[in-house]
Design a protein around this nucleic acid. Sequence first.
DNA 1: TTTAACTGTAACAAATATAATAACAGTATG
DNA 2: CATACTGTTATTATATTTGTTACAGTTAAA
Lengths: 142, 142
Amino acid sequence: MNSEFTIAVHSLVFLAYKTDHMATSDMIAHNVNTHPSRVRKVMSCMRKSGYIVTKEGLGGGYMLNCNPEEVSLAEIYRATSIGSMKPSWCSGKVDEACVVACNMAEVMDHIFCDAEQQLLIYLQQTKISDVLERVRDAQIQR
Amino acid sequence: MNSEFTIAVHSLVFLAYKTDHMATSDMIAHNVNTHPSRVRKVMSCMRKSGYIVTKEGLGGGYMLNCNPEEVSLAEIYRATSIGSMKPSWCSGKVDEACVVACNMAEVMDHIFCDAEQQLLIYLQQTKISDVLERVRDAQIQR
DNA sequence: TTTAACTGTAACAAATATAATAACAGTATG
DNA sequence: CATACTGTTATTATATTTGTTACAGTTAAA
């Protein structure tokens, strides 16, 4: 799975965790442990989907624009990683005489698409707030 | 998802399709459209799981050793790709003071493991014989 | 008993994908 | 108008995936 999904989830959970629900790309990048530029790219995608709003210029940054209890990981997956389940490599060759060789890619493609739909159903169950809760639970277990 | 899974499924479907249920790595590689060496590596794994038997030497090759109606894609996934759902990259840092930063990796890890279990449940439904059937159906649609 | 056709495996090279970094235009604030 | 931000693209570095070669071991048949 695409790691932009991980960055998006982490960033939204971080914003949900902060009392003011705000942070700059530098702050998020430090928390996520990646480069601010990468955070900005992912957050740009989150903004386009409406989960956050951004404020440019001095004193700007990112602010949560959704209820963490209403946004599920499925929606974040759709925004960041849809289609990433299917491997880029595919087997067979369409112009082969063999039935298996020339139809396998299509059949596998269908299997991967269905699998991704199943994944979305599973991810639907977990909301941003649930992730934050689990993070807090994990802390207590230390 | 790992493409060894695709190669394994394609190879088993190809063996199931052949009337004698036998083929060499060269034949399979040509059908799958990859290198014989790669096929041998994946088939070696299939042999260890018991889905095929191999015969070395002249006139040797691979032979199906299971009922295609009983082996599901879940079993093949388990043999070839278990754990590949989780991205190798992970966010946060365990030694950070922030609760989110230091627990996020663990929480995401858990989410990916559960997601993989869900995937296995879905793959369980599809048997080698079903894939072959779909391949034949796809051919008819041409 | 030698040769040819096969698998098993490891090592290496090439191609591709991913992640980090740099650069800079645009924007808002004081 | 200087400063601190985002948005975006381009480039470089790193990791992963795939292809290829090589060769030892195995078996069957000439």
